[in-house]
């Protein structure tokens, strides 16, 4: 197992999609390669940042809706 092989299949590894035997090979690689551990942690942190982006956006309804947009939609609806 090389770092290249590990990183190419990192997503499948994290999603538990690899066969059990391959998963073990990946586990072993992680136990001897601190660089891949650091890469995996930063990859996971990137996913967390993205998910948080979605949560933040969902919880904040924009208040600055342009009046022209409101008017255009209301006009279209009334036609």
């Amino acid at each position: 197992m090389t770092c290249k092989g590990f990183i190419n299949f990192l997503s499948a590894y994290l999603d538990g999609e690899l066969p059990a035997e391959t998963q073990q090979i990946f586990d072993h690689h992680l136990s001897v390669c601190p660089d891949c551990v650091a890469y995996m942690e930063s990859y996971k942190a990137t996913i967390s940042l993205l998910k948080e982006q979605g949560i933040q956006a969902d919880s904040s309804i924009p208040e600055d809706i342009p009046q022209s947009l409101l008017d255009a939609i209301i006009t279209a609806r009334s036609k």
Binding site: T2, K4, I7, A38, E41, S42
Partner: peptide, 16 residues
Amino acid sequence: PSYHEDGHRVTPTPAW
């Protein structure tokens, strides 16, 4: 990431 011929990364990853 880019790799050497032996499959190791050219630039190591500093921890976040």
